[in-house]
Design a protein around this nucleic acid. Structure first.
Length: 517
RNA sequence: GGGCCUGUAGCUCAAUGGUUAGAGCAGGCCGCUCAUAACGGCUUGGUUGGGGGUUCGAGUCCCUCCGGGCCUACCA
């Protein structure tokens, strides 16, 4: 059996509809997962929703439905988004799933066994009406000495019993982890921040609540439910059968990478490894904190009104177009900017003009001049050989970018698209339309090598644009089992029938209302 | 207050301290007609945010200032 590879996204808190940021993370992780699958790894890919906590319980109460019903509804939006965007998850996990409770409680008991869990008191400004604690900074002054929550409700200093995790005991072990495994936190700047944070000293962590009950019960502690971190982070273990790590899925642990947003790096790079060390579970190999998507350089927010529905975007521009744009345009790990204008420009240049038109012009020549069959190549010229050599080399470049621990997705794509440009150059220089008049055999050879180049390029781009590249490979009459990197070396078979070519990447146009701004 | 990242062509980004700072897109000119007004060639475009320093040599290293983003502490 091939080497296991386990990749996860963060699980989303479904207190609203998914936005483009959720889509970005899912798409990036999916592309990485697909790349490794195509490279022959045995991949397990997990995403899902984080459904417990006060906000969900409150919202459900406000709407007069059960928390479970609310979660079912809200979680489904995220699942629909994933399915729409062709996210190839092996499991869409929900923290309300039955097996998740078992995993969380097992992890908890592991931490208890280590002696890292103790009963203490959680103190803070509490609003009875909101059923929530607030930080001092969030409060405003009301009448007299009364302090008010951001919602304007009165708060009072409250002491709540809580279980604590002895995070303070892990400072040295964590620093040693970061030192001995510099790849554990990526990119580099996130790592620096985390190290600084941990060096500054760690306080013990409140890991249970008694103020609400929509959560996973703390074992042997009536009234306590686990607070978000234990509950949410454990999903990564639940999905591969924890506590039975010797089961069929257990071989996927430790995870190869947790793909998350830069806002939750600390929880994944500090709390999570500490929990795992405590419970004596091996640590994941890497936490990768990607950047945020900005809309025309501005932060997205509901109040500014620039929050975009990813499903809407995908329906306007195409799923693969959106996937390609986000992965190619954004340097993975850094913040990125997107706009409808940029999507149109990028997709027209790279997809419609470069790849799509190349395929269409060459394949329609084959359809018209070669009887709709893959033409027979004759002696290869230096240019023919160089063309395929270049593409063969780029596979290695892509592997280095995608499997070297850095996930330089944009660089891998850049390298692949350079080969597309070179193929266009080859085609223009060889001029098969002119050569055909004097030397049909040579024209056939040119078309053969062009088609072969397109076949390989379609395979090389398939982890980013699965549906479109499969269409391209359909047009090249490639069987479904000849579409992974292993198939790059098997050349196109001359003489096989090809279906009539059809354009795959339409030119995009900017909607009139989008031009205005 | 401490720290991290960042600033390079109109836009997105490259350049182990080492020729004249490079690509793509956008713009301009030319060519081609197989193709989705696509493709190819040529080309315009830069005081590398400002200033100072180290060096034979700085986009790169150091100091400082300015702009942008972020982590974190504290005061209240």
């Amino acid at each position: 059996m091939s080497e296991p590879y386990y990749i996860t996204t963060a699980i989303s808190y479904p207190n609203g509809r998914p936005h483009i940021g959720h889509a970005y993370e899912a798409i990036a992780a999916d592309a990485i997962a697909r790349f490794h699958r195509m490279a022959g790894r045995d991949v397990r890919f997990q995403t899902g929703t984080d459904e417990h906590g006060l906000k969900m319980a409150q919202t459900a109460r406000d709407r007069g439905i059960t928390a479970r019903a609310l979660c079912d509804e809200m979680s489904s939006y995220f699942k629909v988004m994933c399915d729409t965007l062709h996210i190839s998850y092996d499991r869409f996990i929900r923290t309300t799933d039955d097996d998740h409770k078992i995993a969380c409680q097992a992890l908890w008991k592991g931490m208890v066994a280590r002696g890292d869990i103790y009963l203490g008191r959680y103190e803070g400004w509490y609003s009875v009406r909101d059923e929530a604690f607030y930080d001092e900074k969030e409060l405003t002054k009301g009448e007299g000495e009364q302090r008010l929550s951001p919602q304007g409700t009165p708060v009072e200093w409250t002491v709540e019993e809580s279980w604590f995790f002895r995070l303070s005991a892990y400072q040295d072990k964590l620093l040693e982890l970061y030192r001995s495994h510099p790849e554990f936190i990526q990119p580099e700047s996130r790592r620096n921040e985390v190290i600084r944070f941990v060096e500054g000293g760690l306080s013990d962590l409140s890991v249970s609540r008694t103020s609400f009950d929509w959560g996973i019960a703390v074992p042997d502690s009536p009234g306590h439910v686990m607070y978000v971190w234990v509950d949410a982070l454990t999903n990564y273990l639940t999905g591969i059968g924890y506590p039975a790590l010797d089961g069929t899925l257990g071989r996927f642990w430790p995870a190869d990478v947790h793909v998350i947003g830069k806002d939750i790096v600390r929880f994944h790079a500090v709390y999570w490894p500490a929990f795992l060390m405590s419970a004596d579970v091996p640590l994941p190999k890497q936490v990768f904190g990607h950047g945020f998507l900005l809309h025309k350089g501005e932060k997205m927010s509901k109040s500014v009104g620039n929050v975009v529905d990813p499903i809407e975007l995908a329906s306007v521009f195409g799923v693969d177009q959106l996937r390609y744009f986000l992965l190619r345009e954004v340097s993975f790990g850094q913040d990125g900017s997107y706009s409808e204008d940029a999507i149109v420009t990028r997709c027209n240049a790279d997809l419609a003009n470069n790849l799509g038109n190349l395929a269409q012009r060459s394949l329609s020549m084959i359809a018209k001049n070669c009887g709709g069959k893959v033409p027979q190549p004759h002696d290869a010229s230096a240019a023919d050989t160089a063309l395929l050599a270049g593409i063969a080399a780029v596979e290695q470049v892509a592997r280095q970018h995608m499997m070297g621990g850095q996930y330089a997705i944009h660089h891998a794509l850049q390298a692949i698209w350079e080969q597309m440009s070179l193929t266009n150059q080859y085609f223009a220089e060889q001029q098969p339309w002119a050569v055909r008049k004097t030397d049909p055999a040579r024209a056939d050879t040119i078309l053969y090598y062009t088609a072969e180049a397109i076949r390989q390029l379609a395979i090389l781009a398939r982890w980013v644009m699965p549906v479109s590249c499969d269409k391209l490979l359909d047009i090249l009459a490639q069987s479904p089992d000849a579409r992974d990197f292993a198939a790059l070396g098997q050349q196109l078979e001359p003489g096989i029938d090809l279906p009539p070519p059809a354009p795959i990447f339409p030119r995009l146009e900017l909607a009139a209302d989008a031009k205005a701004d």
